[in-house]
């Protein structure tokens, strides 16, 4: 059973890789994340939306998460989707410069991406082009700053001793 499923997943991954390669005319970097065995595709910003559309067309219609990781000199926008029918999982990782560059929205494809993108905007300051309603979701509207950035200054924070 397990090896069947593993084979199935490997097959699905290879097919996805091929389809993405076709769509993005070959310039992609497909890998398997180490401990996870999830197909991880590293992309440029202009390949993000075509890749997402390819995944959507291949039936990966359930959204796991859409988030951003702040690597002090650039952001990485990460999207993970999976398919209910085939069990295929794909993670797109797209590097963005830190400020000012808007990313395309995918909230017209996956319904749940709407609030996830709002949260990414709230926490990181990412702007999504084409999003119907980009405003702060978790913090009050008048909050200044985007807390999950690494350079966020916490004005209400209290110094925490290191316990080890």
């Amino acid at each position: 059973m397990t090896s069947d499923r593993a084979n199935q997943q490997r097959q699905a991954r290879d097919e996805l890789c091929e389809a993405l390669g076709v769509r993005l005319s070959g310039q992609i970097n497909c890998a398997l994340t180490g401990p996870d065995e999830v197909l991880l595709v590293r992309l440029e910003l202009d390949q993000y939306r075509p890749a997402a559309e390819t995944l959507w067309d291949r039936g990966l219609d359930r959204l796991d998460f859409l988030t951003c990781v702040d690597w002090r000199d650039h952001f990485t926008l990460t999207l993970q989707v999976y398919s209910m029918d085939s069990g295929a999982v794909a993670r797109l990782a797209c590097d963005l410069p830190r400020d000012g560059v808007p990313a395309p929205t995918i909230s017209d494809l996956w319904f749940l991406a709407n609030w996830e993108e709002r949260e990414a905007h709230d926490m990181f300051g990412l702007i999504f082009e084409g999003h119907p309603d980009l405003r702060r979701i978790l913090l009050p509207e008048a909050w200044e700053g985007h807390p999950l950035r690494k350079d966020y200054v916490d004005r209400v924070g209290i110094e925490r001793p290191q316990y080890f």
Binding site: P147, Y152, R155, V156, I158, E159, R160
Partner: peptide, 10 residues
């Protein structure tokens, strides 16, 4: 949340 909770009233 005493130390790091930026959104929490202590």
């Amino acid at each position: 949340y005493f130390h790091d909770g930026y959104s929490v009233v202590k």
